[in-house]
Every structure is written in structure tokens, then in C-alpha cells.
Design a protein around this nucleic acid. Structure first.
Lengths: 214, 214
DNA sequence: CGACACATGTAACACGTTACATGATTTG
DNA sequence: CAAATCATGTAACGTGTTACATGTGTCG
């Protein structure tokens, strides 16, 4: 649910047709979010299906296949809801870094700590690279003012996000070190499940496996 | 690409069957990421199709429909790549807040500033709520140690993210205020496109509309 | 017995994304 | 003329997600 709302937002400024929306979407996002034209048409179809946009039959005047779309009342309402709604993460979004961390913890503290350090260095490198890019970007000011602002804000967001991730990794590390839990790198299995030989008898299936015979 | 890797990670500990994976996935994520069982089976099928996991024919021993899955060599390799790879956002991920902000800017500085302030207050409220939750959570320590650590880290992540978003909103505000760009709330149209009456002649189609007749 | 947890699986749909086909128009 | 841009659209695939159908075993 991102392209949908983007198109709605662009359409709220007046009727547009597909290719135009692609162009304006990319312009509005500072050229950072390329958008395949095909997706515009499929998304427009879906929006049309859902009654959020309507075809503007005025295409006859141009003799070409240009079909314009405009917001319907429902579309305008949906867009308004989007503007006023803050994305409440409930349940929390499936973030890759988060999931990776949790899964790593599941594999033992050592693994988790390794993931922390490797990702920290990688993220630090990314941050530096982005700062370098930013300097070059401002040096060669080629983009128009609007696009420049957009590009700058996107860059800010990426930097802030990366910093947040780094801070979170630090938190993970300290929490991991604080929890005196012993590592379960084989040998000493934790409470989680059996050491898992090739034919491990899995925890929740004990009963089933035990009396499988009717 | 999140559930896939999660299942691979769980399977790297030994063969598992579907329901078990659901249980362990939810346990590993501190009960915060509920996972529909059906999705486990479909994902397992897809992983099987891609040759990352294989069925363990040992189900015969249990007489029941329990089919276990295990990692293949390719699966183990994919998982290893996952562990060592830091998610590099290139192009940047379609973040909803970011997109909303950019689209708001496209609609004029005033609108953008309004979105900033509304989202800031909403995010602040969310932050406070989460801090409150955290206090209650630690007070009623019901969850086992592992799940508690996971839940705590997820909570940390959410808080850190929210703080980052707030910081970014502040940045947006200052950038917006710094850019002396006049607002384009009707009347004075910006460089972007025509004021867009019902039959607006769209910018990139000038030529087409002009000589449409073959 | 009836409710509930365990266990597997299918069908359907959502959105995002890419590749492809097609044609008109502009421009070098 | 040829290449690039403008312009529309379809087909196909990928993952995530939910709802549903089905059956066994446990427990109060």
C-alpha cells in the first residue's frame, strides 16, 4: 500500500493519465524511487476496480488512446484518511534486521553477537558512503529545487534510519551481554528443543509420536 | 523475503514439520509476530520448489501425516548468505512515512508542514504508549527468559524507530522552513503542472494533443 | 461429549514487480 | 531513416496473508 496512495495523491491535483503519473511520481520522489510504467496501469486498474478512481471519458477529444483518470468521492475520502492516519505498527512490521536478530538469538548468544558486530560494521560503512554521496550531491547541484529537496529528505531518512539501526544493534549487544544465559552452541542444549539429530523427536509432537498407532 | 528466511533459520537446527515451525517462529519472535499456519505450509512448498528444503520421508515411522522438512545444501548456503548479508537499501525501500511526506511536499509546503506536525504528535503518543507497555510488561514477568528477551528487543526496535522517525520529521520541518519556496495552494501554480481544470492539458502530452490528427 | 490444541493442506486474493508487445511522435 | 521518447496495456510471477476444509488426539 504505497504506490496506490502515491497515485491517489497525485490524482488529487486533477485528472492524469498513466505515463504522466509515472513521471510525476518519480519527480516527486526525487528520482529515487523508479516506477515501472506497467505498474501504474495495473494499479490504476485496481484503484478503478475499488471505485477510488474513475476513467475520464474525455479521451475522445484527443483521438489517441490517452485515458485520463480522476479521483472519485471514495478516492478522495481514502486519500484524506491516508493523510490523517499515522501508520500504527500493530503488529510490528516484519523488519528484516529485526527478524534476523531474533533468529540469530534463537541460534545462541554467540551467533547473535556475531550478527550484531558484522551488521554494525556494514551499517557503519553504509552510513559513511551515504554521507559521501550527500556531499557529492550537494556539490553537483543539477536537480531542480523540488527534486533536490525530495532527494535530500530521502537521504536524511536513510541516514537517520541507519543510525537508529546502529543504536538498536548496540542495545541488542548490551542486552545480550547482560543476560547471563549460557550459549547453546551444541553440547549444552537450552530449553528450546532437543539437540536435533537427523530424526529429532520434536517437542510439541511428543504425544502424537508416542501413541501414533490409533 | 522474511518468512522464508525465518523458516530456513529454524530448519538449520534440524528437521521440523509445519506446525512446529509456526510455534517456534512465534516463540523466537517473542509472540509478537503471529504467523498463520497456512503460510508455513505454502512457504515450505515454495522453499521445496526452489530446492532449499527437502521432505524427510521418515514420516512413515509415525503413521500420521507428519511430514518433516530439512535444509538442503542449497538451503544451507542461502541461509549463510542471509546471515552475512546486510540488507542494502538500493533503491531505498518504499517507506510509507517517507512517501507520504514527499507526496505532501508535492501538494505544497503548508500541507507538508501539517503532515509533519500531525504525525509528530501521533508518533509522540505512540512512543509514550510503548514506554507504558514496557513498564507493565516488565512488571508482570510472565514470559520465559528467551521470549522476554525477544519481546524486549522488539520493543527497543520499535522505540528506536519511532524516535528516528520523529527526528526525521524535525529535519523535514527545518528543511521545509529553510526552503523559502512559496506555497502553491492554488492560484499560483508551481513549475510542476497546470492548475488542472477538469480537462487539464497535461504537461508531457502537449505535442500529442496538439497534432493528434495523424 | 464437546471444546480445544495439534496437524496438514488448498484456494483465493492482495500488492509489487518485471518483461513483453504495440504503436505514435519527436528529433538527430 | 533511425533512435529515443511518449503512451498504453497484458501476462506472468513472487511473496504475504487469510479463510476454509479436514482430521486426530487430549482433557474436563
Amino acid at each position: 500500500m504505497a504506490v496506490r496512495e502515491g497515485l491517489l495523491s497525485l490524482l488529487s491535483d486533477g485528472p492524469r493519465y498513466g505515463y504522466q503519473l509515472k513521471t510525476q511520481f518519480e519527480a516527486a520522489t526525487g528520482g529515487i524511487w523508479p516506477l515501472n510504467v506497467g505498474q501504474v496501469y495495473t494499479t490504476l486498474d485496481r484503484l478503478n476496480r475499488d471505485g477510488l478512481v474513475g476513467e475520464l471519458a474525455a479521451a475522445a477529444e484527443t483521438e489517441t488512446a490517452q485515458k485520463s483518470y480522476e479521483l472519485t468521492a471514495a478516492g478522495r475520502e481514502a486519500l484524506g484518511a491516508w493523510w490523517s492516519t499515522v501508520p500504527v505498527d500493530e503488529p510490528p512490521p516484519r523488519d528484516e534486521l529485526m527478524l534476523k536478530m531474533l533468529m540469530a538469538i534463537d541460534h545462541g548468544r554467540d551467533h547473535a553477537l556475531a550478527v550484531v558486530t558484522s551488521h554494525r560494521t556494514a551499517l557503519l560503512g553504509l552510513l559513511q558512503a551515504r554521507r559521501r554521496e550527500a556531499r557529492q550531491q550537494t556539490a553537483a547541484g543539477v536537480t531542480p529545487p523540488h527534486d533536490l529537496l525530495a532527494a535530500q529528505l530521502v537521504h536524511d531518512a536513510l541516514v537517520v534510519r541507519a543510525e537508529a539501526d546502529l543504536r538498536w544493534l548496540d542495545l541488542c549487544e548490551s542486552r545480550l551481554l547482560a543476560s547471563g544465559q549460557p550459549d547453546r552452541t551444541d553440547g549444552a542444549a537450552s530449553e528450546r528443543s532437543e539437540p536435533a539429530g537427523p530424526t529429532a523427536r520434536p517437542t510439541p509432537a511428543r504425544r502424537l509420536t508416542r501413541k501414533a498407532r490409533r
